[in-house]
Design a protein around this nucleic acid. Sequence first.
DNA 1: TTGTAAGCGTTATCAC
DNA 2: GTGATAACGCTTACAA
Lengths: 357, 357
Amino acid sequence: MQAKKLLFEDTVCYNIGKSSVSEVNKMVSSRDVARLANVSQSTVSRAYRDDVYIDPITRQRVMDAAKQLGYYPNLSARSLRNQRSRILGLVLSDPDNTFFASVIRQLEQHAGERGYRLVLTYTDEDPDKERFCLETLISSRAEGVLVMPVSRANEDMYRILQKSGIAAVQLFRSLYDDVSSVCVNDEQGAYQAAKYLLDQGHRRIIITEYTFNQENPAKTKGYRRACEEYGVDPEEGILSLPFENNLDGIIAGALASTGATAIISANIPITLATLKACKSSGLTIPDDISIVAYDDSQWLEFQGITAITHPMQQIGDEIAQSLFREIDAYGDGTTPERENRLIKPYLLLRNSVKKIQ
Amino acid sequence: MQAKKLLFEDTVCYNIGKSSVSEVNKMVSSRDVARLANVSQSTVSRAYRDDVYIDPITRQRVMDAAKQLGYYPNLSARSLRNQRSRILGLVLSDPDNTFFASVIRQLEQHAGERGYRLVLTYTDEDPDKERFCLETLISSRAEGVLVMPVSRANEDMYRILQKSGIAAVQLFRSLYDDVSSVCVNDEQGAYQAAKYLLDQGHRRIIITEYTFNQENPAKTKGYRRACEEYGVDPEEGILSLPFENNLDGIIAGALASTGATAIISANIPITLATLKACKSSGLTIPDDISIVAYDDSQWLEFQGITAITHPMQQIGDEIAQSLFREIDAYGDGTTPERENRLIKPYLLLRNSVKKIQ
DNA sequence: TTGTAAGCGTTATCAC
DNA sequence: GTGATAACGCTTACAA
């Protein structure tokens, strides 16, 4: 059965007319609430704090007025006055990469508990976009920034972060020595993956990496270490890939030209491309080709792909700890020590690797 | 081969000591830049605008000073003064659902072109969280809000949005009649899916829906319409599901108890659960069970699952148009007409449906 | 217990 | 062309 699109007809668009709301008021401020509640503006402000003396009856009157008017405090004004934005910036690569979903989830949780909001931004692994994200977050006066850094090109931005007293933690890649980091021990993960394949008798193993990410060669390093232990030449197994959507062809080509019996795919999108490449090349897993995926996902679990998995719960906790430690230090007027946390990945055996005699 | 976790050892944690940065300055303001550049603070401000005249030489001096100090304008102050935050709020269900990735991408693009930033928030389909997201966005004085609404419980919030002059567009679900929306024609999509299965000879077809989402019965409606055209009783095919992660068991149970030959899964996570259910029940696709997935993804494409797909590019454009139309209207002091845009889904035939005689 | 007023960092309106 | 200056909405001494 051939894939086929049915005819795509025009968008239907109904205009149903004016909104039924009678009048659009300006944004309501604490002054308006004060007027309605017959108190001063500062009393309204106090009603929203719980550490200050205020008559419960007054507070109730304020809250009633606020509710009636649909008042919500203006966070811009608040953060301007307080010199605290309560914003945490998250700079990730790519909304398509489901690997980050659980990180986002957990950080949102941790942030919420501390009264912080999370602002998500994406670099698409483009240094210019990374710079833009950081600039925006600095302009927002974020108190902390969690970044998956793209390249060393933006070193100046990280220096500005430090100078400005903005906590910063590198995520999953440690590109800057003087910025804290929470990373997976990729060297070890790739080593485990490669060693496992070597143990199973594979001798021609491909490992993928991103060309742009060669400043961060942890995975290939682990791969090399394993190969050397087994007396296998690692060099021609290293496949350098651009950051694109259609990697299938390149991978299929490499598979064919090297005659590899196994491949380690460096992340979830690359794993998908690898699976597509195998399919289009008519290679069966694991009979014709063995796969170990670096990074796990529910789809990989479903498909029985052996994978390097990470303790996501722990990762989220470590990131939050590391970040808030820095934020608290800056809050106390001290310079935080930087720290690097390295988290151990583990190999989850499923059914995508064949034993070779 | 049985799935098996290798031993997870302790996290390694290096503390490498004090940051090398000598001193942490306070956040730098335009005053500081002014002082260094030997101009007044208002001149610094002017240097960042291009609609006012300023001596290019002065501007350069300002910019040099700004660069030297690592100055970035404070957006809180700016939005307070301008009464424009240039923030767009996006309220989605779930970071795990890859369906939204391309929407996020495109909206970021559109927003960027207009000088807006996107703030992402997630409801997890929980009305309380939806309320919290909206409150936060109002407090942030977002100029526009794009929401996938959860339930009618938060009607008051939408009224406040309108009263406050904040543009609002419902995404993918239209729960409020007086709020604009950009939706996929789910009635039609489900109708197409069901009709296709009926055409292929299936008579016992399950369609899934979320229990919490019964206020928005478009998909089941389309399913019913198709069934009725074929003289099939639709009622016992409707499977109502909680919003959870482990739906496999429920789905497997329903498959077994109804003896269905086909299933329409209502979104990507449910499709995954369905595939897992089939696997654990030992059902082969499409021989034992046919599947049409509502919403498409790269993984479904890879696995050859027939799916209801949406023109994501167009959806992104329509959303942006609809939103900015409202924002511009509010900007002109007029009340925007609300509008409902309905986008046609299409059926993408792959290999997950069997023809029954 | 509540009101008054200063000031957070901007931009816009005036003078000069 | 550039420099004072008055808001924007909020928090927080300090007064009352």
